[in-house]
Design a protein around this nucleic acid. Sequence first.
DNA 1: TGGTCTCTTTGCGCCCGCGCAAAGACACCG
DNA 2: CGGTGTCTTTGCGCGGGCGCAAAGAGACCA
Lengths: 230, 230
Amino acid sequence: MADGPAFAKAIPLFTALDAAALDEVKAAAQMKRVDAGASFFREGDPASSFFVLDAGSVKLTQLTPEGHQVVLRLVGPGDAFGGVAAFGGGTYPITSEAVTDAAALEWPGSVMTRLMERHPRLALNALQFVAARLHELEVRYRQLATEKVERRVARALLRLVQQAGRPIEAGMLIDLPLSRDDIAQMTGTTLYTVSRIVSSFEAAGLLEAGRQRVVIRSPQGLSRIADDLE
Amino acid sequence: MADGPAFAKAIPLFTALDAAALDEVKAAAQMKRVDAGASFFREGDPASSFFVLDAGSVKLTQLTPEGHQVVLRLVGPGDAFGGVAAFGGGTYPITSEAVTDAAALEWPGSVMTRLMERHPRLALNALQFVAARLHELEVRYRQLATEKVERRVARALLRLVQQAGRPIEAGMLIDLPLSRDDIAQMTGTTLYTVSRIVSSFEAAGLLEAGRQRVVIRSPQGLSRIADDLE
DNA sequence: TGGTCTCTTTGCGCCCGCGCAAAGACACCG
DNA sequence: CGGTGTCTTTGCGCGGGCGCAAAGAGACCA
């Protein structure tokens, strides 16, 4: 059951693990499937499991007390998620909602802890992975604090192309159901403002926009907006 | 030299380590002292060392390409910093500037890696620590994305009191040289706006403000601003 | 094919927060 | 003790982005 196709591919968390350790880790995993729109776990649930995504796309979100949602990041195949909370034994600080149908490998937190104690390499890989996410978020935090909305939207679109881009006649399709509101939640603004900005990008020939659908025509053009110092 | 006073106190990174392991870790450490205003390392330096603060206060900052500074977090005694980058062998993604005179324990990254391989508990502690920082930043990110400036400033002041508060006749003194601009860099706004907001707090009797100095009179009052829905 | 539901666009007004400029306050130093 | 530099306050004007409201455009279902 734990022998999905992705298991053969490179999972950062498992690099440099010897064969015996890998077998042990594989044996302890279960596969969990979730439909688009459903979630692996929700903010506030008791944190019990550690996940590595096998297929599909998952977005990690947080809810404000007022009910506004914020998208923290998008998870792709091979990425770990949720798990770091599972060690502490508290509750999940975020919700993991499947954007498309998705499947993930699941380990109970206590099992993963024991595996890491026995195979320090695994713990070190996890440390590196979490540290990389932390750094990524630090950069995004800085950008949110200092940059104008238009630039943040351009950046978000470029990131999405990289994570979920699929080449198509007209350009690079962002292969996810992606509404204006989703983009707003990723960039810390409102769907109205995103709609206006996306329209302006379309008018400039940088992309083609549809209902829950964006095709990037000119990544360079977006990069210019994202990076140009003035 | 590694036997500073703080070493006897609780360092989260070293909890649940057996005596032998702790000795080994201690033996590998060096003490590094830095004057207020100077830094342990700067963004872009080759990341070589892992630190645990022993005394003083350190702020972790990032610089935008345009030269604007953003304060990511404040480090107190017992906290680890910088190190996670040291494992990857890249460069430091942030600058660590001493706010007061400070001293920290230092391990070369390669040494700490070896220690963690030998003592998985150490790696697990580090993982938990970094995960907690990540979660903290996720919350701050959400707040930056959704909340008004006044509320963010109130929150920042409360956090500062908790991290560096010292009781004094008039209330709780934030025991750090803390300019309006510093607060602005912590809350993603400008020193002008902070000045106005702090003045309004002072007018409301919530605090006393001076040059690089804030005394909190009514934490409850600030909490009300920080948390009240509406 | 028509109806319904959700997503998107756009007009419009408003207000928060920015940021320059200049004056005031405080600390430190010779 | 006066000078100098840094930090802080405040006036002022403007503009970016918010957010309501209402119309338009797709997608999906019976």
